[in-house]
Simulated assay, not measured.
Amino acid sequence: MTSVLQNVAIDCANAYELALFWSKVTGRPLHPDDKPGDRETEVLLAEGPVLYFNEVPEPKTVKNRLHLCLRPDTSRDEEVERLLGLGATFVGDHRNPDGTGWAILADPEGNEFCVLRGESERA
């Protein structure tokens, strides 16, 4: 017997607004039934599980133990700039002079995620 990964759940203070941010990040739509004020929302990814946002009463207080890693279809640095323009904040720089490494950003509620090199940069 096995289990199938249904979703990646993200606790948050405002499910709809955070789902909108991640919808812009991924270029994928919200569930068609989601609307402002919903306490649970989903971003429907092209493949794999959905991103599920669930409102909780407590704020984020420490570093994530689980995080998302994004591989952009552009360069890593171009994607970092785009995401900063969407409302992300820069957390840490693990980019190396030889072009390897990643950047750590946080979404509008402080959840950290990594931006990896794009496919063309890895070739």
Rank of each mutant, 00 (worst) to 15 (best):
H94P: 09
C69M: 05
T61F: 01
N7E: 12
E119I: 12
K63S: 14
R82Y: 07
L51T: 08
L51R: 04
D11R: 00
A46C: 05
L70K: 07
W102G: 00
S75I: 06
L68G: 02
E40T: 10
C12E: 08
E121N: 00
P29M: 00
K60W: 06
G101F: 07
D98W: 04
R117G: 04
V4D: 09
N14E: 15
P49S: 14
Q6C: 02
A19F: 03
G27Q: 12
R65N: 09
R95W: 01
Y52Q: 10
R95M: 04
A19W: 01
E58D: 05
V91I: 11
Q6Y: 01
L45H: 09
D38H: 12
Y16T: 09
H67C: 10
R76Q: 09
L30S: 15
G27C: 12
I10L: 12
D77A: 01
T100K: 04
M1C: 12
P108A: 13
L83A: 06
K60N: 07
A19M: 04
N111W: 00
T26S: 14
F53R: 03
N7F: 10
P108E: 09
A123T: 08
P36A: 06
L68V: 01
W22Q: 04
D33V: 09
L30Q: 14
K63R: 14
E40V: 14
G110S: 08
E81W: 04
S23I: 08
V91R: 03
D11H: 10
P29A: 09
L116K: 04
P29Q: 11
P57C: 06
E79Y: 14
P29S: 11
E121Y: 08
V4S: 13
L66H: 04
L116I: 10
V62K: 13
E47P: 00
P49M: 11
S23V: 11
Y52L: 15
L83H: 03
R65M: 13
A123K: 03
